[in-house]
Simulated assay, not measured.
Amino acid sequence: MALVLRLNSSAIFFVLFKTLENKSINNSSGIGLATCKKVIEDHKGKIWLESKVGEGTTFYFTIAKNLG
């Protein structure tokens, strides 16, 4: 099952302990994506998502080539 997320609210998926309202779809603690965001930002990167009806959601990220 592909999960499609509303892009106008995509920023909430990267907030610590924020989860989907419908727990029957996702039994989540809300820690995973917030942790990913923190690690990626610590490496001077960005994280975002793109969501398409019928296809699902894809998460993307970048990190800096030179961290020194």
Rank of each mutant, 00 (worst) to 15 (best):
G68S: 15
G54L: 01
G68K: 15
T62K: 11
F61L: 10
N27E: 13
T19C: 14
L5N: 12
T57F: 03
I31F: 14
G68C: 15
N66Q: 14
L3H: 13
K44P: 09
L67W: 05
N22Y: 01
H43W: 11
R6H: 08
S10W: 06
A64P: 07
Y60H: 05
S29P: 09
M1E: 11
L5W: 09
V4M: 00
N22I: 08
K37I: 09
T35F: 08
A11T: 08
T62G: 14
F59H: 04
T35E: 14
K37T: 04
L3W: 02
L67E: 08
S24D: 13
H43K: 05
N22C: 09
D42M: 12
L67V: 05
I47G: 11
N22H: 00
N22K: 10
L3D: 03
G56W: 02
K46D: 03
S10L: 02
L33R: 11
I47E: 08
I40T: 12
C36W: 04
G68Q: 15
K52S: 10
Y60N: 14
G30E: 03
T19V: 04
I25Y: 07
M1Q: 10
L20Q: 07
I47K: 00
G30H: 14
N22S: 03
A34F: 06
A64Q: 15
T62F: 10
L33C: 05
F59M: 07
E21Y: 07
G54T: 02
L7Y: 10
E50H: 02
L3Y: 04
G68P: 15
E41T: 15
T57N: 00
G30A: 02
G68R: 15
D42Y: 04
F59P: 04
L33Q: 07
S9D: 08
M1N: 03
K38Y: 07
C36A: 03
E50N: 08
G30V: 12
S24E: 12
I12E: 00
I40F: 11
G56K: 04
I47T: 02
N27V: 06
G68Y: 15
I47F: 06
F17I: 04
I40H: 11
F17W: 05
A34W: 00
S9I: 09
